[in-house]
Design a protein around this nucleic acid. Structure first.
Length: 583
DNA sequence: GCCGTTTTCGGCCCGACTGTTTTCAGTCG
């Protein structure tokens, strides 16, 4: 592991987890110190701010789980690029050990045994050395290991190699639907739900989690392990089972009888961090929580609904999107959980690409204005906005560009229907901050949004100036897919978000949540920060065909995870309200 | 090592599954 001053949150989390693993292997060490390091790792990995920025503002210890001691170690890390205390703990163990922890099923104790028995020391190619040894049958000979655990290590290595990417939310939904259909073929399945990060609507999903209500868990699990598209069955017990799909994605299933289904939903929805906090809260009331129910004085109370489960604890029901272990439990206790925006609140979609050919700089849409309007009416919208990309700058004179915009404007204005069409445009922000459309053309439009489609790696300060310059025009209403990230493909750009929020707030600009499944941008944590600052959000789909308008549900999911209410979202306004904002 | 609606000291979430044991340790979510 390379330790340096510029570590990302994920890298720091991995460093802290390595320390936790080393502590676990240190004889006589306090088990809870180890847990403390793991919690600090979780807190940093899930923080909405870069740890280094928090350190700059002397706010590291504001992260729950990061106290005085770990904060001072991180201070040393950011000042000097290393942490002597961590070094002294880690140097007792072969670097290879920490690599082996990546293999599912291999924990600190077994990793150490493997390193010692097989003589694997360096981090470099540690996993492939283990793989070779296992294939030669050497692992089965080590004390405490056998043929089965050797085979398990080999499948674990396959899994580790194949699982570099997380599933996009919409893909996960499709897979879950297919398994759900399979499970519903047998009568013993009374209820079935997809839970975990999918139910919490995280932008990407690691595992697919399913729960079933049934009095015959055996039959349910047996049927599950016969799912036709499975690759391998990882485990199958009396209440839970796991299998993998051909692309190494894992599916976990858990079964409880109907009368205890509420606690199962709660348990399996997570997040892990939410559950830990909830159990700690319950413990103070003398209650112990599990997927079976709530244990009070040795007796388990069962719950058929999740609502009853939370109410029994004196809490309001908490929407799954908010169960990430922030302050949702305290708010549920004092009846302060906000009413989150819903799909039905949305009145229109302001980033749609039609097939009106303005000879654009990027992809043209596929659907006609008529097709888009019909689809939007089906969704119950009052308005949509067409935002084709600006005409390509190269190969067009300013006169030609003007002509193209004029032509498009005439098409939009001559279209009459019960749904209102706003005449917009998505404009590239050039590397220097200039908009890729002459201001003369802007005056023909009802509005525009701006976005970054090139030079993604500028430094934070230049990038921030670039974006603010482009936003600074009365017709420019919002900043589209603001981080420009592509999930599993491209990191987002670097911006000084406080400056962006501040500018938006002062100048009435909005930030977009783009519902396109591999964008989902703004990301939930940043959108949460934005609305806390008072910045308004517009949720769009970035549709390039009429079918894509259905992606609105994913944009709304991001907004819900960002704690947005209807008031935070401008396109919950009816047409009259939106007209005032745009014209 | 962290933290406070019983606590600044004394606690720290809970259970399932597997493999290798012969009653439990390790790992996971």
């Amino acid at each position: 592991m390379k330790v340096n001053r510029n570590m990302t949150n994920l890298q720091i989390a991995q460093l802290l987890r390595a320390v936790a693993a080393a502590l676990e292997l240190t004889p006589g060490d306090n088990r809870f110190r180890q847990i403390a390091y793991e919690r600090a790792a979780d807190a940093i990995e899930h923080s909405s701010s870069e740890a280094k920025d928090l350190w700059d503002d002397n706010e590291l210890a504001s992260l729950p789980g990061v106290g005085e001691s770990i904060a001072s170690h991180l201070d040393e890390l950011f000042r000097t690029g290393k942490v002597r205390h961590f070094d002294s703990i880690l140097k007792e163990f072969p670097p290879a050990l920490f690599e082996l922890l990546d293999i599912p099923g291999v924990g600190p104790k077994n990793a150490l045994k493997l390193c010692k028995a097989l003589g694997i020391t360096s981090a470099h190619s540690a996993i492939s050395k283990l793989e070779k040894a296992a294939k030669k049958g050497q692992v089965a000979l080590i004390e405490g290991f056998g043929e089965d655990s050797q085979a398990k290590i080999l499948t674990g290595i396959i899994e580790q190699k194949g699982r570099s990417k997380r599933l996009l939310l919409n893909t996960a939904q499709t897979i879950a639907d297919s398994i759900q259909n399979w499970m519903e073929k047998i009568p013993q399945v009374e209820k079935i739900n997809a839970l975990g990060s999918l139910r919490r609507q995280a932008s990407t999903v690691g595992d697919i989690d399913l729960s079933v209500a049934s009095d015959d868990a055996r039959a349910v699990i047996e049927h599950f392990t016969k799912y036709p598209q499975k690759s391998r069955v990882l485990e199958a017990g009396t209440q839970t089972a796991s299998l993998t799909l051909p692309n190494e994605y894992q599916v976990d299933l858990m079964v409880q009888p109907s009368q205890a289904y509420g606690s199962l939903l709660q348990h399996f929805t997570g997040s892990k961090h939410h559950n830990i906090l909830l159990r700690e809260y319950a413990l103070k009331k003398g209650l112990s929580l599990s997927e079976h129910g709530i244990k009070r004085a040795g007796k388990v109370v069962q719950f058929e609904s999740e609502q009853k489960f939370y109410n029994f604890l004196g809490l309001d029901w908490i929407p799954p999107e908010l169960r990430e272990g922030e302050n949702e439990i305290q708010l549920a206790l004092t009846h302060k959980i906000p009413k989150l925006v819903e799909l039905a609140d949305i009145r229109g979609d302001l980033q749609i690409h039609s097939n009106i050919d303005v000879e654009p700089s990027h992809d043209l849409g596929e659907s006609t204005l008529r097709e888009l309007a019909e689809k939007a009416k089906q969704l119950g919208y009052e308005y949509i906005g067409l935002t084709e990309h600006n005409p390509a700058v190269s190969g067009h004179t300013e006169g030609k560009i003007e002509e193209l915009i004029k032509k498009k404007t005439e098409i939009v204005h001559s279209f009459h229907d019960s749904i209102h069409i706003f005449n917009g445009m998505e404009i590239d922000i050039q590397p220097g901050g200039k908009r890729a459309l002459p201001d003369k053309c802007l005056s023909m439009l009802d509005y525009a949004c701006v976005s970054v489609h090139s030079s993604f790696r500028q430094n934070k300060s230049d990038m921030t100036k670039r974006v603010l310059a482009a936003l600074d025009h009365p017709k420019v209403k919002f900043f589209a897919h603001p981080t420009a990230r592509l999930l599993n493909e491209r990191e987002g750009i670097e911006l000084d978000w406080d400056q962006i929020f501040d500018f938006c707030l002062k100048n009435g600009k909005w930030l977009e949540i783009d519902g396109w499944p591999n964008r989902l941008d703004l990301p939930d944590v940043l959108a949460h920060e934005a609305v806390k600052s008072g910045v308004k959000i517009v949720i769009d789909t970035d549709s390039h065909s009429a079918d894509h308008l259905d992606y609105m549900r994913y944009g709304v999911s991001v907004a819900r995870r960002a704690w947005c209410t209807r008031n935070d979202i401008v396109n919950t306004l009816p047409l009259t309200g939106m007209r005032k904002l745009l014209c």
